[in-house]
Nucleic acid binder design. Sequence first.
DNA 1: GTATAACCGAGACGGTACGTCCGGTCTTCCA
DNA 2: TGGAAGACCGGACGTACCGTCTCGGTTATAC
Lengths: 199, 199, 199, 199
Amino acid sequence: MVRMPAVNSQPRRARSGNQRDEAARLAVLHAADDLLVEHGFAKLTIEAIAREAGVAKQTIYRWWPSKVEILLDTLIEDSEKRFAVPADKSSVDGIRGYFRGYARFVTRDPAGKVLLALIAEAQHNPETAKSLHDRYLGPRRELERALLARGIEAGEVSTELDLDAAIDAVVGPIVYRALTGASVPRALVDALFDGQLKP
Amino acid sequence: MVRMPAVNSQPRRARSGNQRDEAARLAVLHAADDLLVEHGFAKLTIEAIAREAGVAKQTIYRWWPSKVEILLDTLIEDSEKRFAVPADKSSVDGIRGYFRGYARFVTRDPAGKVLLALIAEAQHNPETAKSLHDRYLGPRRELERALLARGIEAGEVSTELDLDAAIDAVVGPIVYRALTGASVPRALVDALFDGQLKP
Amino acid sequence: MVRMPAVNSQPRRARSGNQRDEAARLAVLHAADDLLVEHGFAKLTIEAIAREAGVAKQTIYRWWPSKVEILLDTLIEDSEKRFAVPADKSSVDGIRGYFRGYARFVTRDPAGKVLLALIAEAQHNPETAKSLHDRYLGPRRELERALLARGIEAGEVSTELDLDAAIDAVVGPIVYRALTGASVPRALVDALFDGQLKP
Amino acid sequence: MVRMPAVNSQPRRARSGNQRDEAARLAVLHAADDLLVEHGFAKLTIEAIAREAGVAKQTIYRWWPSKVEILLDTLIEDSEKRFAVPADKSSVDGIRGYFRGYARFVTRDPAGKVLLALIAEAQHNPETAKSLHDRYLGPRRELERALLARGIEAGEVSTELDLDAAIDAVVGPIVYRALTGASVPRALVDALFDGQLKP
DNA sequence: GTATAACCGAGACGGTACGTCCGGTCTTCCA
DNA sequence: TGGAAGACCGGACGTACCGTCTCGGTTATAC
């Protein structure tokens, strides 16, 4: 899905002077997303994003310290939309549904590529690792722990592991198979879930 | 462990003219390893390897199509030494020991960083993904499947999943926690193992 | 002589709303002058002037088409103060004194650096050349020609060249030596003067 | 006179490996010269030179510390060809001829623009000033002094000034008029010459 | 009195060029 | 023929300014 860089349908809302240009912000996020999905992380350069978004390089550097932060912005927005951690549920089905959504996200949703790319980049770059944890993995894990805690308290699930380990026992195989290009069928998610969080 | 780039103790055995220079090959492998461990993948450039190894760039390009293949060479050598897949055993303890070794390798052995870096780089680059599977993950998985198959046949272990899924159920969390900087205590490995491969 | 950019002793007289802010105008001229003298023309950017003057870039662009015009403004003001072309005299001493003043200005007066910089910039940029001639060199030369003409008419000086050539015969070496970093001692001015405008 | 960047008549002599590529060197010098003459110093950027010469920027930076040194290289070569300081003559006519050649060079020869541009740039940049003196003005002035000294010793010319001042008295007006866009007719050169170096 | 218009500081924006780094190719010369 | 050396073209990096623009606020003049 390529967006035309120059001419937009509504001719780019008059720039807002002193304030940040929301159109430019969105153009950058979309360009980064598109480029990652279509050409991969290796081709994802700041110059390419600027070109694709029809934006000056300086505009990118003004607002993001690195391309990783751009991807994090899109990831945070997208994953909230596509597989939010349920904030209220505590039923087995609700929790299992969450992990199914996780598997779907990282294996089939284009936005899931962003997460895999960031986990990868975190291996190459400590600052990426820190940002990824501080802005994405950490907060999300917090919600996941709360979800599980509610489920346990409600007697819907149980585990012999600590919460983090239990989550990793399900999420780990999902992510690992996504990273190695293997599929993650729903039945596998369910088996992993039942193996560690049996009622 | 830094190696001196230029001057070696014994002034580099007279070059062998016609045949491949084994000293150069080793110097490249060690330089790549050192640089990865000390400065990370991001700083691991062909030029840096050549500099560190005291070798011409052309010599590297002559023998390796990319830096990824260099790392694969070191990874294959190292992981065979440090945690080979047992080719004969089929006892529970033998299999469990293998997974314990896996966890130790990726979380505590410097050579384990190479594996994590290659899994990461495979996300950025399809050719890396192919090489990593063809030369490392694939063959290794073959041996792991055989190991498990022997264990099952001997009645030492059992699983309701197919062999690959069962292995991923144990290896996945280990690798995922290594990738995200979490520890992988022996007790966790054992719990994962017991969860999916109970006798 | 550095001026404080931000906070002035008397907190910048309340802005004059509708009318041009004289304080801003002076701040720009002084900033340009200071920056040229202290850091050279290469560092004299519109942004630096704005920064140093505590003024918005737009305020500069509103009143001056380029930094060259700013320098011309300061040059015209300064050189009128420091070595005005005598409008009345016609004695040998008066005329000789003018050329001595010229030499002093371009070799020892900081404001003289502005003239040299503008002559230089005129080589790089035709618009600068035009402005420099129209606003400075032309009018000034007009006065110099008149000065000489009065001297000749009064029998105080004489030359075999046309007026412009005679002036250039004296001014040329002065400026050339200033441009090449050589000194221009008073005795040299006198010798040049006597050589072309002997009584 | 634009040179085609890509396809040359003789298809760019096979690059010479370890040694400096003479074709690239010449392409850079010519490109710089062409761009200066056609578009002026302001448009003379390293990127434009690289583009025009069909050369990588790094190749320029490898051999020249700045574009000024490129121009100095062309200036030194060109001015040796177009108006060398006579190394043997000492006759009045020989010396006068030299100054006539000087005037022709700076007012009518495209290569003369390079000298004017460098004198100009020297006002903006102390390093340019140093290079211009060390590599061009200084050595050349040495030869000019020797030329005059021979003329004086032979009784062909004489002056009351020191040698440098005498040369500046002739060269100064020539250069100043060139800088200000005025013409320098042969008669004016002769008059300047006769005024300071009368026999 | 209030509206209008021009001023001002601030700073975001699309661009261009900077000087550096590395990729991957090529050629020379030596052993 | 292999290897050290390093020049070459290409392209991305992150930074500095360019000149244009709009914002929000102030103040003098016009209605």
